[in-house]
Amino acid sequence: MRAAVLQFPGSNGDYDALMALRSFPEISAQLIWHQESSLDTYDLILLPGGFSYGDYLRSGAIARFSPIMQAVRRAAEEGKWILGICNGFQILCEAGLLPGVLLRNRHLLFCAGEQIVRVETSNTPFTKTISPKSLLRLPIAHGEGCYFASKETLKELLTNDQVLLRYATAQGMTTSEANPNGSLENIAGICNKERNIFGLMPHPERAFEELLGSRDGRKIIESLLASLHGLIQ
C-alpha cells in the first residue's frame, strides 16, 4: 500500500503518522508538503493532527484552501482512502468532505489522555476487520473536538451508518461521563456516505506499540490492508 502523509504549516502529528505507517512492511509512506498538487499514486492519504495555520479563524479553515486539498478532493472522488486525524478531521469538515463541524470542547479545557472508543460498524474499509462494539484504547489531545451537526445531518449520519467511533466507558457504555468534550451523541469519528473518508478525533498513530500504552491504533491500518487485499483479489 502506498500512503501519503500530508504536511501543512503547523502539522505536528506528521512524523508520528509516518513512523506508524512505516512500521508495516507492506506500506510505503511518504510526506507530502501542502503546496504539492498531485496525489495520483497513493492508495491512502492521511491528514495528520496539529494546528495547521495556527488554527487561525477556525480549526482547519485555512488549510482547506491549500493547493494539495484540490488533489485530496479528486482522490476522494476516485474512491481513494482519506484518513483525517484530529486537526485532519477538522480540515475535512471545513472542506465539506465530511459533514458537520468540530466546536470548542464543552468545558473549554484542552483534553489530553487515554480514551476508550467503541467501534460502531465494520462496514467501512477502516473498520472492516474490527468487530462492532469492540473497544479501542486511543490517546486524545484536542481543544476543539466537540462534534456538532444539524438535526437533519445527524439523522442522515445515523440512517447511513456513518458513525464509526463513539466515546465509551471501560464497559462500552456511551454515557455522558465517557464523553470528554461534549460531542453530539458521543461521536468520536465519522465517515462520508461513500465510506472512503474517515475523520476521527483520537490519535491511532500514537497507539502503535506496547511502549506507548496501546497498540489498538494498528487495527485501523490492518483493516485497510485487509481491505486492499480484498480489492486486489
Binding site: 473549554l108 456538532f148 444539524s150 461534549g182
Partner: peptide, 10 residues
C-alpha cells in the same frame, strides 16, 4: 442560537 457557546457561558 442552536450551537453551544461554552466561552459565552463561562
Amino acid at each position: 442560537a442552536a450551537v453551544l457557546d461554552p466561552a459565552g457561558v463561562a
